[in-house]
Design a protein around this nucleic acid. Structure first.
Length: 113
DNA sequence: TCTGTGACCGCTG
DNA sequence: ACAGCGGCCACAG
């Protein structure tokens, strides 16, 4: 309850706002979001998302790793949580191959570039 | 592919 | 206020 009952920090709010700019059917990397916020730690982005599993208000599932793999979801780096993430993306037309890599790199969203 | 190091935010004590 | 630690990561070797 320490998590769900907590009010978002300013940093978290900025992360969520940034995610809101990512259209459906597109994905963005943790690094890209970090860059957008002027933060040099992509991991800090993951932290912020973990603290707010309240989808679909915040489309956490649209954030993947720089190497094209899914990365974690809802605080876990594997298992059913990530399976769910993959399903959600699949519903938006974003697919991953057997290696867990993003099939179509054109799906990658990025700001100003 | 795996390991080590860098980076940084928020929790806890 | 402050130090230590862990975490949905990135990057180099």
């Amino acid at each position: 309850m320490s998590l769900s009952g907590r009010r978002p920090t300013r940093f978290e709010a900025r992360v969520h706002a940034a995610l809101g700019e990512v259209p459906r059917g597109r994905v963005v990397t943790y690094a890209e979001v970090a860059k957008r916020l002027g933060c040099r730690s992509a991991q800090a982005i993951g932290q912020a998302l973990k603290r707010n599993p309240r989808a679909p208000e915040v489309p956490c599932h649209r954030v993947i790793r720089s190497d094209g793999r899914l990365g974690g979801y809802a605080g876990k780096r594997g298992g059913v949580r990530v399976d769910r993430k993959r399903r959600l993306l699949r519903e938006e037309g974003v697919e991953f191959d057997d290696e867990g890599k993003l099939t179509d790199p054109a799906r990658l969203w990025r700001w100003g570039g």
